[in-house]
Every structure is written in C-alpha cells, then in structure tokens.
Design a protein around this nucleic acid. Structure first.
Lengths: 252, 252
DNA sequence: CGAGTTGTTGAAATGACTCAATGTTAGTGG
DNA sequence: CCACTAACATTGAGTCATTTCAACAACTCG
C-alpha cells in the first residue's frame, strides 16, 4: 500500500488529530502493516493488550464472550478506524476479541511504542481520552437502548449504524456489503437470530430493505431511522405508532 | 476540611497517581471546595462540561434521562472518587446528571484548569485515559449483564457493587448506608420497582439481607455474590474465574 | 448432487411488566 | 403524643414481548 495513502488515513483518524506532518511520518514509520483473512482474529480476548492498530482495509467485528458463553457483538471497525487504545496502558488484557469479517489490513504499533509516542506528542493522550469518552457515551447509549427499546427498534438502529458507518450509496439506496448472518445481527442487537429474522422479514415485506446473505440493501433509510427512534428530521409524533404498525401486519 | 485530609484523598485517587507531593499541592490549590445538600444537582445533563471534581464527603448518583423519559441510574460516586473528566475536553456537554443522595462536598476544578494541569503533568492525561478505559469496560459489562442475566441476578449484582463501593463492615455483615428507594434500585438494575421489591422480598425471606428504607444490611454477601454470578471464591472450574479476569486489569 | 450451514416460520413457554389494591413508614402540625 | 398525609413498599392477577423449540426451506460449496 502506498505511503501517501497510509499517511492520509493516519491524518484523518481522531487519534492523530493535531499532529504535524513530520510527526505523522515519524508515527507511520514506527508502525508495521499486517494482514488477515476472513475469520482471523486480529486480537483475542484475554491476551495481554500489546497492540494498537489502524485499519487500512477490510472490516472486523468486536466480539465479547461472557462468562456464561454468550457472545456479544459490540461494534465493527472499518477502514480508517483505530482499535486497541488500551495497549497504551500497562497491565491490561483485551476485554474482547476482534475478528475479520473480510480480508483486513492494519497498521500496527506495539503498546509501549504507543506509550512512547504519547509521551513525545502529548496531544495524542488527549486524543485517546476524547475517543474513550465518546466510546463510553456510545456504550452507555446502547445500554439505554437495550433497556427501553423493543427488538424491532434495536434492529432498525443496528441497520442505521451499519449504514452510517459502512454503507455505500447506490441509486437512492444504501448498500451494506457485509456477509452478516442473522446470528451476527442478533448478537449485535441483543436478541436471538429468530427475532432478527422475523423483524427483517417484516421490513422486507414493507419494502424498507432487501436482505441477502452477503449484503443488505436499505431502500428507505428514512423510515428505518424513524423506527429506530433516532429520526433527526422527523416529526416527533407518530414515531411509536409507525414502529408498531410495521410489525403488526402479520397477515401476508 | 483540613488540607492534609484533602491532599490524602487527592493522592489516593486514580487521576492523580504518579504525581509528586509538590504537584499535588499545586493541584489542590487550583481547586475550590463546594457543598451541596440532599437532592441538589452537582452537574446537569445537557450543560457544558465545565467542571471536574473529586468527592470528599457524601454520595451522589449519576443519572441519565433518555429521550423518551426513562431514567437510568448509571452508578454512584462517593468519597474519594472523581467525576467530570470529560471537562478536560473542549466542546462537550455532560451526558448525565449527578444528584446528591446525601449532603456532599467536592473539590472542583474548572475544565480549562484541568486541561492546563494535564499539559503540565502529562501523566494526568494517561491516568484519565486509564480511568475512562476501565469505566468503559464496566459499562460494557453492565450491557452484557442486562443482556444475559435475569432480574434477580442483576439486583444481586447491584447489591454487590454497592457493598464493595460504599459498604461498611458491621459484625460479619455489610451495611449500605444509603436511603435508596425501590425505584432507585430499579433504575440501577434496569427493571421496575415492582420487580426489585419482589426480589428483595425473596432475599429477605431467605435471610440474605435486611432491607430498610434508609439502609440495606447484607447478611450473607457470599450467597448474594453467588446469585450475582460473579462469585470469585466459588467453584474453581475456572470458567467463571477466567471470564472475570478477562475484564479486570491483570494483577500488577 | 449432497451435506452442511443459514434462514424462516408456527406454536408453546416464560420472565418480566403493568395495573390495581393494600399495607407500611416517615414526617408534619395540631 | 396522636392523627393525618404523602411517599414508599408489597403482593396478586392478568398481559405481553420475546425466547425457545421444532420442523422445514433455501442457499452455498466442494
């Protein structure tokens, strides 16, 4: 991969905001490029938190296995996004695994190298802090959603998140080019693969989406947003009514 | 309040680890002591994140109101614990409110003062990062619990957390001296006041606890821990122990 | 083509919530 | 000190969203 391209990705990431081009070059030189194929683990839960990385190609999922064997899909990381900030700290282990859902490449730094860099470029520590604050707010929000929203809304929310993060526009629609199983989506939304299947069927029947095995096409993102309950444009009346009306029609 | 006592609290907090006594004095002088009575808001959701603080007396609860009016009780802060790290960053608003559940005092720093301090003592930024990483792991864990555990387990978990954080030993038992309503506990555990009441009744009937309006007495913390599913002493099959060790930072 | 994985859908089971009625406690002022 | 009131707690019965289980359909890949 060309150096300028990597530099560009670096400069665009939140962790490296406010650094001079020189600093960015230095940082780039301190990292190494690694590659994984589909299904590989970029990092594994329980291992020493030794690496920080910036994804330059592909998409991976962050998953956590609970003591009782449940899997939770926390989020996805794609091109341009970083993971493993925890490696800057001593004596931590990864609280989750990251698995490639398609072939991936990432720039990788050793944890102590990252710590050194933060020493040399103190703004990086603040950047990291900002990232963690935002991430925690997101986690908090997911918690709230799990608490207050129904399965249908949470699935819609998941679709919106995927669309915003990884979706590609395609004549008026949004295409999510990931081979996600119903089980993946269940783990992502905190429900079962059966419920996901039911909800997606309803969405499909109503023409909101077109879900296939290797991609999801969102036909009416606005309506999906509305069901998700995070409709920024929308009237704040009827959101619930609309949400309900989408799942009620059981009759085919 | 005596200066030495404040310095001691400062030194004991994670945010100020690794600072020289001189530095601690400087920092102490930069803060001001404020007081609140029961029910007061130390900070309010939606306001500019302008203050960082260290609680020196009393206990307060972090609550979040969702767009649809639900309240979520995130955690408690007590003596020696800090809140408002977000104030070190520009252009953030508080994502939650903090309300005193008993008379409180706290050392308060302006956000920009905190940012300056981080500039002068770079280790503070790393400390803050560590705190946020741990906090995010906790939030993540709560999410998991909400997903996989039943109400009974979550309430037990809440009791364990309260006991660990704020409990005082009292002949073989643990006393939690807080006037928590069933509704508070419901918001804390992600359920209704009715379910909390039922669960506590069962616990009480089985002699695990003794819950009154102004305090909770935990008679058999081990059994409560076991119900919570985070019993470290329990079965050494390792599965649970391993799970726990994945989330908690490694022993030093 | 066949085997294994993934997806769909109905029916039954269930944990938790809602609602309503009733009991209890703390705090107030007479 | 008592009566009164408001806040808080308990408990049962009914309801509901979601899960579980099972059977079957569709797709993928060697």
């Amino acid at each position: 991969m060309r150096k300028e391209l990597l530099l560009e990705l670096l400069a665009a990431n939140e962790a490296f905001v406010g650094l001079s081009p020189d600093a960015l070059e230095t940082i780039l030189r301190a990292g190494t490029l690694r590659h994984w194929t589909r299904g590989d683990y970029l990092i594994q839960q329980g291992n020493d938190a030794a690496h920080f990385a910036l994804v330059v190609r592909g998409t991976a999922k962050l998953i956590q296995v609970t003591p009782d064997g449940h899997q939770v899909l926390i989020r996805f990381v794609g091109r341009g996004q970083e993971f493993g900030l925890i490696a800057a700290l001593r004596d931590f282990v990864y609280p989750l695994s990251i698995q490639a859902v398609e072939p991936c490449s990432a720039l990788v730094w050793q944890g102590d190298v990252l710590a050194d860099l933060m020493q040399r470029f103190p703004i990086m520590a603040l950047n990291a802090l900002r990232i963690m604050v935002i991430r925690n707010q997101e986690t908090q929000r997911r918690y709230q959603e799990l608490l207050t929203q129904r399965v249908e809304q949470r699935v819609a929310q998941a679709l919106v998140r995927l669309a915003d993060q990884l979706g590609k526009p395609e004549d008026e629609m949004i295409r999510i080019d990931l081979a996600l199983t119903r089980e993946d989506l269940g783990e992502f939304t905190g429900t079962t693969l059966y419920s996901v299947s039911r909800v997606l069927s309803v969405f499909e029947r109503n023409g909101l989406i077109d879900a296939q095995r290797d991609r999801i096409l969102i036909r009416k993102i606005d309506e999906v947003r509305q069901i998700a309950g995070t409709d920024p444009s929308g009237s704040d009346t009827g959101v619930i009514a609309c949400g309900a009306s989408c799942i009620i029609p059981k009759a085919r």
